[in-house]
Amino acid sequence: MGIKVLVVDDSSFFRRRVSEIVTKDPELEVIGTASNGLEAVKMAAELKPQVITMDIEMPVMDGISAVREIMGKTPTPILMFSSLTQDGAKATLDALEAGALDFLPKRFEDIATNKDEAILLLQQRIKALGRRRIYRPVTRSTTPTPAKSTKTPASPQLARSVTPAPAPVRGTVVKRASGKKYKLLLIGTSTGGPVALQKILTQLPANYPHPILLIQHMPAAFTPAFASRLNGLCKIQVKEAQNGDQLRPGSAYLAPGGMQMMLERGGAHGRIKIVAGSADMNYKPSVDITFASASKISGRETMAVVLTGMGADGREGARMLKSAGATIWAQDEASCIVYGMPQAVTAAGISSQSIALDDMAEAILRESSHG
């Protein structure tokens, strides 16, 4: 039996289009379609799909409300379709906060350079989500305290996250610091990254002693909104990186979508260089690119963390960092939405620790206190 998929969209044309793509893969099966969020909530309970594809703007009940209802009643992996606009970015981030696990542009020409590539990517995303079992969203006891009053209040849904089913082996917990000294923290991620980054960054104090470079696979229209949202929630400062930014302790710099973020010498802690990158790069931004540039500048004084995500982006950059003496950690399988990128660095023997998401911020703080 294939992975059972429920397709939700108010456009009959788009429902047919997505259904045709899904059923082309023998490992996938469309078991139903819904034209609005209310139908989706009912059909999710009745049909028990393993993955739901969800539009955002729909009559009767919108996609964000539907995600919230489904995750509260019958938790199911949900893939959102979004427009690549400022409003679409905000709505997609709201959907991820409500419990959706991933998103793709609704215009398939924005997904990939050709039709076949776009079809394959959609099928791969659905299969990756369908292999994960999830439980109800929970509010952890470690929910961060509100951010500084000078920042924009964050959405109340931000503390909600989806807990993946536990794997047989849990990641290790770092009980004591290694004693190494650091000057830079790098974090690379993809699918599931927005929630994972939020969970980690909201636990860092305003006086966190190092600059942080964040590489999240995300379209250009989304990264300004994501950086702004994180900045409103976190005690540290978070911004979308700009060419020439001087790195400062207690500040996080999010790689802009559609571009590549590199580190170069300049100032006390280094300077950011933003470039377009080559057209044949699979990821813009790419974790490998940023990690590789940091290996030449900060080397052994760097800590790099690879979080949840599809594929293997970050493995080769992490290999270069490790060769330069850097410390590499990976998120453990149990807490990943997709155990792809962390598995790549772990299987290659590059990471020294596999750490659960709930424990990652504490481990980073303990290790960074010696920097």
Results as ranks from 00 to 15, higher is better:
residue 154 A to N: 05
residue 156 P to T: 03
residue 157 Q to I: 02
residue 159 A to F: 08
residue 160 R to D: 12
residue 164 P to W: 08
residue 164 P to V: 08
residue 164 P to K: 05
residue 165 A to T: 11
residue 169 V to K: 14
residue 169 V to L: 14
residue 170 R to F: 05
residue 170 R to H: 12
residue 171 G to P: 08
residue 171 G to D: 07
residue 171 G to Q: 03
residue 173 V to L: 11
residue 173 V to I: 03
residue 173 V to W: 01
residue 179 G to F: 09
residue 181 K to D: 14
residue 181 K to R: 15
residue 186 L to I: 08
residue 187 I to K: 04
residue 188 G to M: 00
residue 192 G to P: 12
residue 194 P to G: 05
residue 195 V to M: 12
residue 198 Q to V: 03
residue 199 K to C: 01
residue 201 L to E: 03
residue 202 T to N: 09
residue 203 Q to D: 04
residue 205 P to Y: 08
residue 205 P to G: 02
residue 207 N to R: 00
residue 208 Y to L: 00
residue 209 P to K: 00
residue 212 I to D: 07
residue 213 L to W: 02
residue 214 L to Q: 01
residue 214 L to E: 02
residue 214 L to H: 01
residue 221 A to L: 01
residue 227 A to Y: 13
residue 228 S to L: 07
residue 228 S to K: 14
residue 229 R to I: 14
residue 229 R to T: 14
residue 230 L to I: 14
residue 231 N to H: 15
residue 231 N to G: 12
residue 231 N to M: 09
residue 235 K to Q: 15
residue 236 I to W: 11
residue 237 Q to Y: 09
residue 237 Q to D: 14
residue 238 V to G: 10
residue 244 G to I: 00
residue 245 D to W: 00
residue 246 Q to F: 07
residue 247 L to Q: 10
residue 250 G to F: 09
residue 253 Y to R: 06
residue 254 L to F: 01
residue 254 L to A: 07
residue 255 A to E: 06
residue 257 G to I: 07
residue 257 G to L: 06
residue 257 G to D: 00
residue 257 G to S: 02
